[in-house]
């Protein structure tokens, strides 16, 4: 007994479409920084493009090229990237409730299950709007992110030694910008401080890449503590979507 939800008014449809496309355009533009940083870290244009097409999750992509660029092993790069990608699986638990997808559509939906598509989807009050918001945002970000990745990779390749332009330093700034919106609770701040400490202490002792993985333990230490009195109120600042990241 699957009853199709009532159709969306033309106005609401236009509104959701506008929201999805603006998020897609804004986020897609950041692909240029990923493309440039990736080739600066020593990846080829094709490897860079493969990450945007197949991995398609900004934080994880920056992690792969960041760890490899810092001399870390492939295992460390994959592990860091994968740990950062866990949240997409959690988004999928939410989006699967309203998407109602099976078969090939489910395989496609999985690939575009990222911060932005989830945020725009869950922000809509009506079921049809949730679906349009998810699909349109995901597809718009996918296209924008991939096109701009290619532009960034080609530009990055053309300008020669990335150190001259400070592109290696830009990676830290990208990670900081991804971290920033997440530092709203006392627990998050405590986790970040502990993670920085672990990375500082272990870096001189262990191979590159390993300290970042050990830093992940900060989340376990802080998360398993009893209490949780330091949680910020669940309401986000006006105009911001829950879990929205500057990149996919």
């Amino acid at each position: 007994m699957s009853t199709e939800p009532p159709a969306l008014s033309a106005d609401r449809r236009r509104e959701v479409r506008r929201q999805a496309l603006s998020v897609g355009a804004a986020t897609g533009a950041y692909g240029i920084s990923f493309g440039a940083l990736s080739v600066a870290s020593g990846l080829s244009v094709w490897q860079t493009q493969a990450l945007s097409l197949l991995l398609f999750s900004g934080g994880s992509q920056f992690a792969v090229v960041g760890v490899l660029g810092a001399g870390g092993s492939g295992v460390a790069a994959v592990l860091t990237s994968t740990l950062l990608g866990v949240r997409n699986g959690l988004y999928a638990l939410q989006t699967s409730r309203f998407l109602g997808v099976t078969g090939v559509r489910r395989l496609a939906a999985a690939q575009i299950t990222i911060d932005e598509s989830t945020a725009v989807g869950v922000a809509q009050p009506e079921r049809p709007a949730q679906r349009i918001g998810f699909w349109l945002t995901g597809i718009a970000v996918f296209i924008g992110w991939n096109v701009m990745t290619l532009v960034g990779a080609l530009v990055g390749n053309a300008i020669g030694d990335p150190r001259t332009y400070g592109l290696d330093a830009a990676a830290a700034a990208a990670f900081a910008a991804l971290l920033w919106p997440r530092l709203r609770s006392g627990d998050a701040a405590a986790t970040a401080v502990l993670a920085v400490f672990v990375a500082l202490v272990t870096s001189p002792l262990l191979p590159p890449g390993v300290p970042v993985i050990l830093a992940a333990l900060a989340a376990v230490v802080v998360g398993l503590r009893r209490g949780g009195r330091h949680e910020a109120p669940p309401t986000s600042r006006a105009g911001e979507l829950p879990g929205a990241d500057p990149v996919p």
């Binding site: 934080g59 740990l83 949240r87 971290l179 998050a188 992940a216 989340a219």
Partner: peptide, 8 residues
């Protein structure tokens, strides 16, 4: 908290 720790 996992992304916070990894990004930091």
């Amino acid at each position: 908290l996992l992304p916070v720790a990894l990004l930091a």
